[in-house]
Design a protein around this nucleic acid. Structure first.
Lengths: 230, 230
DNA sequence: ACCTGAACACCGTTCAAGT
DNA sequence: ACCTGAACACCGTTCAAGT
């Protein structure tokens, strides 16, 4: 059977842009945004690749639609929360969603406000910051908080695909464990020594790491707020 | 002339891994890490693609070598600087280097300590933080500061390739300029209104943006330090 | 309007063969 | 050891043709 020939047995007649996006989103959940080709997507729909072009457009257009779909599923905490709680909740739950669709976080950070679904979140986030007293710094602080947090998600995405490379990196540090020549690396080694090697433990480490990043960036924002009030 | 056939006229005899890496680094400076193929690289060396495989390895290996080469060019400020100055200088000048090689920043954040050249920087950075009093938080804070800063560089890399998409996003906000329905977006629009549309002005905006991110993250670290001392 | 089927111009990578 | 040249199994995208 030729690879680009749809199986006639299970022809999904009446393709729409919506069905294409749904299928693309499912493929993304399974193998990431870079894990499928236009031809794979067509095959999943038992359709010729050109049908994708007809209903949605080129690969870029499909990716955009997937990002839009995923962002639409992101939570948007109530506007009456205090700023620190609002961002803690949004960034924590946002991570959960983004992690289910590897590769989307990176494109979201890139595309940013091009995605219509993101507008309601941006609007509320900025309002929450303004009410807290950030004034005209609200936009800069919003960008910093969301960018810092979500930029770390794709890092986790790709690192989880390379567990062995990650363990190798760890061993490099551990080799400097008691080295007087490199006291900084020895510290890193000591820090890493406690963690385990299993995938579950690595996931747990990622979680703690993310929480640490959240708190540090929220502290940075808090410091700026204190400075503005002084 | 067949695309994969090296021009015999200018045959660069005696290919070495070093020459391959140099050529790949030059191509990266010109068109980014994703802007050339193995075949392009071979053509630049007037050599068959298989020669690359023989001397360096597959594409991944070449990319790794390029990152290594670029990191070797990064500055490493003197260890006796106060922690905030050390990171300001390193992250600011590091950005300059990384921006000259689009795509490298992202891979660097990903590969992290896998790159040997990075080890001397990590070691010194962690030592500087420890001496400042960060104790066992030094590693977490180092990761936060460097990650946050350098993760924003590839964003700039890719955004600069899509200036029109960026301007389109701006117009979306400006459309909400006086909207009472979306006061947050109106604020973003007001913030954006001042900036110009020329590439130079966008670069200037990026620079201010990066500086703002640096200061916010350094403030976050400073807050943690104050907390540790209390 | 929607789908077919072939084709174009690429990829990264492998491999047997030469020298 | 090093390079040649062809080949394999893919890509995204376009286009003329069908219905």
């Amino acid at each position: 059977m030729a690879p680009s020939t749809p199986a006639k047995s299970k022809a999904a007649a009446g393709i729409t842009a919506d069905k294409v996006t749904t299928a693309a989103t499912e493929l993304t959940a399974r193998s990431g945004l870079d894990g499928w080709s236009v031809r794979d997507l067509a095959a999943a729909l038992t359709v010729y690749p050109t049908v994708i072009y007809h209903h949605v457009g080129d690969r870029e257009a499909v990716l955009h639609a997937v990002v839009e779909r995923v962002v639409a599923h992101m939570p948007c905490p109530p506007a009456d929360l205090p700023w620190r709680e609002w961002f803690t909740e949004f960034l924590w739950e946002g991570r959960e969603v983004l992690r289910r669709y590897p590769g989307v976080a990176r494109r979201l950070c890139l595309a940013g406000p091009t995605v219509p679904s993101a507008l309601r979140i941006i609007d509320r986030g900025v309002v929450v910051l303004q009410r807290a007293g950030f004034g005209d710094q609200a936009v800069a602080v919003y960008t910093f908080l969301v960018g810092t947090a979500f930029l770390h998600v794709p890092l986790e995405d790709e690192r989880s695909e390379r567990v062995d490379e990650r363990l190798a990196a760890r061993d490099v540090f551990l080799a400097h464990g008691r080295g007087d020549d490199a006291p900084g690396l020895a510290t890193v080694a000591a820090q890493l020594g406690g963690g385990g090697r299993s995938p579950e433990e690595l996931t747990r480490t990622d979680e703690l790491h993310y929480r640490s990043i959240l708190e540090l960036s929220l502290d940075g924002a808090a410091a700026r707020l204190a400075h503005l009030r002084a």
